[in-house]
């Protein structure tokens, strides 16, 4: 019996954000936007969804008078990502 893939992670942009954040300690919104080639509006919505699920922490502050948004994966996010990858492996095993 195959496990159902987490619908929050089984979306192209959200999965891209989580995959990027799992490889770094924290990253600025602009860095994630650059690496995912997403639009600011679209990315903002998906980041908010991940935050609402408790998968990432989002810190908004000002740096040199400009707003700065920093994202960081949470322990719940790491667990969900690991579970997603395990479920994927189950699907892909012959």
């Amino acid at each position: 019996m195959f496990k159902e893939l987490d619908p929050i992670l089984h979306s192209q942009l959200r999965l891209a954000v989580m995959s990027l954040l799992i490889g770094v300690k924290e990253a600025e919104f602009t860095f994630i936007k650059e690496k995912t080639n997403a639009t600011a509006g679209n990315l903002s919505v998906q980041v908010q969804k991940l935050r609402d699920c408790g998968y990432i922490d989002v810190v908004k502050q000002f740096k040199d008078n400009y707003p700065q948004t920093t994202c960081k994966i949470t322990p719940a996010g790491i667990a969900a990502f690991e579970a997603y990858v395990k479920a994927l492996q189950a699907y892909l095993q012959p």
């Binding site: 799992i22 990858v85 892909l92």
Partner: peptide, 14 residues
């Protein structure tokens, strides 16, 4: 397969 490729690609970018 696309999911796995995307994960690998983003990890490589990071």
């Amino acid at each position: 397969q696309e999911s796995l490729r995307l994960i690998t690609d983003m990890l490589r970018k990071a």
